[in-house]
């Protein structure tokens, strides 16, 4: 049985008085890819943001490699080896593509990812490395955001909406590259709107509905019906 790298226990998260997550317990094992699916507003991003330290008010436990990371600041969590590709890519617009990558790399963790390995993975970025990141196409921005997260050589990488707004061909190429990205003992959590893609890429899947886990299980074993029921609540 591989080790648990990340676990939340009955996680509640709030925006002011509004509760966005209710008792969400999610486990992630070493080398595993899990997918989180759910309708708009289900709480997927809130979960990802809670784990990376971006939500001010959360209850109950988040453990990373056996230690609690609840209450740590986002930069402290990042230094422990948890990286996120945030929803909407969020590159730094006034930095060049390469500078964006270097910002990811300034957490000096050892590992395979450096500028040249990222450029090997995404050759497009190499050609555009000196231009401001806001001049990249949507797909290129997603590559840069992935590259930026990889540059910190994380142990756990979180992808929030990996394919939103991208052309099918780009989604395909990102998914083709994903096994290369998530290798060497890394674990990943992927938020994906496209259910069949989510099931295809992940070992296990959790479905959120209005802030609660409505369904979870091995991706290969869940049926379409179960999923649509959990997804739409019908």
């Amino acid at each position: 049985m591989p080790n648990k790298v990340l676990e939340t226990k009955n996680l509640n998260a709030y925006y002011g008085d509004f509760q966005a997550l209710f008792e969400v317990s999610i486990d992630l094992f070493e080398g595993e890819i899990i997918a989180i699916i759910g309708a708009n507003g289900a709480g997927k991003s809130t979960f990802m943001r809670s784990v990376t330290g971006l939500i001010d008010r959360i209850d109950n436990e988040i453990n990373y490699k056996g230690l609690s990371i609840k209450g740590l600041r986002a930069d402290e969590i990042a230094k422990k080896g948890l990286a996120m590709v945030p929803e909407g890519r969020k590159l730094f617009p006034s930095l060049s593509v390469e500078e964006n990558l270097l910002i990811g790399g300034q957490i000096k963790r050892l590992g395979p990812w450096k500028l040249n390995t990222v450029y090997e993975l995404f050759p497009d970025l190499y050609d555009k490395r000196n231009i401001p990141s806001n001049l990249l196409s949507g797909g290129q921005q997603q590559m840069a955001a992935i590259g930026r997260a990889l540059m910190s050589n994380p142990d756990v990488i979180l992808f929030d909406e990996i394919s939103l707004g991208l052309a099918p061909i780009i989604i395909k190429s990102i998914y083709q590259n994903l096994p290369k990205v998530i290798q060497k003992g890394m674990s990943a959590i992927i938020v994906e709107q496209d259910i069949s893609k989510a099931l295809e890429i992940s070992d296990r899947v959790y479905c959120l509905q209005e802030g609660r886990i409505a369904l979870f299980g091995e991706s290969k074993q869940l049926t379409r019906q179960e999923i649509s029921k959990a997804y739409f609540g019908i």
């Binding site: 971006l54 730094f92 930095l95």
Partner: peptide, 14 residues
Amino acid sequence: RATSDDQEIAQLMG
């Protein structure tokens, strides 16, 4: 410059 662009994402980058 990164922090000036987006404080939250800069924190996320450590």
